[in-house]
Design a protein around this nucleic acid. Structure first.
Ligand code: ZN
Ligand code: ZN
Ligand code: ZN
Ligand code: ZN
Lengths: 132, 132
DNA sequence: TGTTAATTGTTATAATATAACATTGTGTAA
DNA sequence: TTACACAATGTTATATTATAACAATTAACA
């Protein structure tokens, strides 16, 4: 079977909503907002989220248990992600920095472990919040 | 009031257990294992965990919702953490690499956000699991 | 000693996520 | 086209992770 090219109905509904809100959003908030589209149960949302993460259309912000659409037109299938998170207003941006990603992709730890994936989350104050 | 020098009773019980097991462990597993010491409720564990994270004695592995003792004798009060995680056996090691931490501490994103903290999690196969 | 903050104890509940199982849809190849 | 395999769906129940609210106690210190 060929690699999936089109999203299933539920996957598309969930992705459409995540892309529309354009900021990190939690699974049950998604559920709430797509019930009018016929999605009724948490599992339907979580299954769509799993697939969307797997194919790199969205990422999970682990420290926030939230999901956000990928802005980098796909992050090598979600294997290398970096975010900045404002601890005051909770604004999250996906970092796209080729030097950083190159550095991390090539990072070799002392135990000789070979990595195929990483997730990096920076925390601080965004510009708006730091002048307050 | 001076900065806390000694841990409270519950904090010490929880830390002792985390240091003893020497691998990432989940909050409710901690609860189970310290009940003989008199800790009865989840909140008692979570409060101790919060404090221990805050003072850098332990770290949270965000992608696993698990907690592990700090091996770097304190990571500048837990503001800069990096881990390698084996996706097969779930072994987790704290990475101590001064070049990496220097690189990340000095990283400046394009939006001009100033960071005071980061968490990095690498995923792959540990040596043992990759020869299987 | 009186005052403040930190810590504890306790019950209840919120928020996040998965198990299990039956059913339906879709792509592929004989 | 039919049969197969796999992906996706629907549904109910439950597991796991974490916090709210409030009262009581303990520790630090001026
Ligand atoms: Zn991305
Ligand atoms: Zn902000
Ligand atoms: Zn550490
Ligand atoms: Zn391993």
């Amino acid at each position: 079977m060929l690699k999936q090219e089109t999203l299933s109905k539920n996957q598309q509904i969930v992705l459409d909503y995540i892309e529309k809100v354009n900021e990190p959003i939690k699974a049950y908030s998604i559920l709430h907002n797509v019930q009018k589209k016929g999605i009724k149960a948490p599992l339907q949302v979580y299954r769509a989220l799993d697939k969307l993460v797997e194919i790199g259309k969205i990422h999970k912000i682990e420290s926030r248990n939230a999901f956000v659409a990928c802005k980098n037109s796909n992050c090598q299938i979600s294997k290398a992600t970096a975010f900045s998170i404002c601890e005051s207003c909770e604004e999250v941006s996906e970092i796209s920095d080729s030097k950083l990603s190159k550095y991390l992709k090539n990072f070799q730890d002392k135990a000789g472990m070979k990595f195929n994936k990483y997730n990096l989350e920076f925390f601080g104050l965004c510009k708006k919040c730091s002048i307050k």
